[in-house]
Every structure is written in C-alpha cells, then in structure tokens.
Design a protein around this nucleic acid. Structure first.
Lengths: 119, 119
DNA sequence: TCAGGACATCGACGGACGTCGATGTCTGAA
DNA sequence: TTCAGACATCGACGTCCGTCGATGTCCTGA
C-alpha cells in the first residue's frame, strides 16, 4: 500500500521469472483481476481526455459509492491509476507506463524492462 | 471450472468493456495474479519444448506437491495450460492462444478479437 | 500379482477479499 | 459561518483463496 516502486516487467516467456520478480508483478495483476476494476480501467481509458470523474464512474455501476471508492483505491495503490482532485471532484486517469509494463509481461517478441512507480 | 470457452479479448483501452466481457476476462487474470502461478507459467514457457514435467516443477518451489498440483489445476482450468499425461509423468504446456488473448487485452495498437477455450 | 512412485483429490485451517451502511473530511456556495 | 454535496475511511459480514497433511488413483517394473 506504501511500498516504493520497483523494476517491472520482463516478458513472462523466455527466461524463468525469479521469486522476487513474481512477488512484484502479482499485485499488479491482482489489482486487475476483478470484473469491476477491469471495467473501471476500461471506462477511464475510454473517457474523453483519458480521465474520468468519480461521480460519473459511480453511475456506471450498481454498487455503493464506498465500494467504487475502494476499487479505485486498489487500482491507485497498485500504480495503475493517477489521482487528481479538482475542487469538489476527483479525476482518475490510467497511467500509460503501468499498462505498458503489464503488456510487456505478455509480449512474446520484445525484451524491454520497464519501471513502474505506484502511488 | 467446466464452462465453455467464450470470445476474449478486445483491448482494455479504446471502447468501454461490457460487464459480461469483464466477467469472462477476470478469471484469466485471477489465475495469473499469484506469484507461484506466475513463476509456474514462466518456468513452463522457458522449458525445453515449451513444456515441463510436474516432477521438475515440484522441485523448483518450497511448497507441498499438493499445493503445486492445485496451482496447476487453476491454470489449466482457466485455459492457460495444456495437460498431457505420458506414462507416469504429467507434462504441462503454455497455450499460446491464451497468452495472446491476455496480451491483446493490454495492446494499445491492435484491435484483434481472439477466442480462448478453457480445459 | 504386488509394491512403489507420480500425481490428483479431500477436508480443514487462517488470512485476504468484495461489499455494505455509517461516519468523517474537505470544498464551494449561500 | 453554515450547509450541502463529493469522496474517503471505518468496522463488520460472508465468501473465496492459498496452504497443508492425509488419502485416493493410476501406471510401471519386478
């Protein structure tokens, strides 16, 4: 929840993943491994300007505001979303580096190593 | 555990994801969202011939054989691994379609839709 | 036919997770 | 200063998950 960001990710294929590396990557995938959070990320990414207001996100689900707030916190803590408070409203945006990092995991061609800094 | 395979996946970015689509994709990511399973997939993918014997996988972890067997079952049930019994030994192999399907999720350029059939 | 090894399954336990209602905190307007 | 709205946090509840020891199933060689 407050750990410093570490190097991530090399492709899953190719060379065997170290235990430490797996421990770093798993939380990223765990944050995405929920239908609601998957839709939240998708909704935010597809919104105008690549960001969305929490008030709009709340309306898109049949869930409590507390629950949506919780899911956004999980995504933000994992380093997948940026948070920007403007007056009364809070806007969340997808962090492109985060998406690229995860994409690199499943890339079968490239060998890039990326850095991801949560929160 | 025994559901028929359904269409998966369109990129997370671009158009908002439907609830049904999210419910189908989440189990895939949930299966990968564990350090041990991440290493298992990586180990198998990096093995000669793209497959590995359970006996060798057991030795790579400080975990019970029952636990490794459980994780392999989770990955197999999600459609990520193929299972092949040869005599006394069981070999698991990564399903390329599965990896491609997940990769497509985080692809920011392509618009491909792939099908993934579990078990 | 029998013994041993490879792997799966079962049942149980502790901890983590998703959801909720209630409450707290901050901001802008009256 | 006060109030209403937007969002976060808290505490609680039921469920799911990772791990284990014990046991079951299947195959092979003697």
């Amino acid at each position: 929840m407050s750990e410093p960001g570490l190097a991530c990710c090399t492709p899953l294929t190719g060379t065997p993943m170290s235990a430490e590396q797996a421990e770093q990557v798993a939380p990223l995938l765990k944050a995405l491994a929920d239908p609601v959070r998957l839709r939240l990320v998708s909704l935010i990414a597809a919104s105008a300007g690549g960001e969305a207001c929490v008030c709009d996100l709340n309306d898109a689900f049949d869930l409590t505001q507390a629950t949506i707030s919780h899911h956004l916190k999980v995504l933000h803590s994992a380093g997948l979303l940026d948070r920007d408070k403007r007056g009364v409203w809070v806007f969340y945006a997808v962090r492109p580096e985060a998406m690229t990092a995860v994409a690199t995991l499943f890339d079968t061609t490239g060998r890039t190593t990326l850095a991801l800094t949560p929160a």
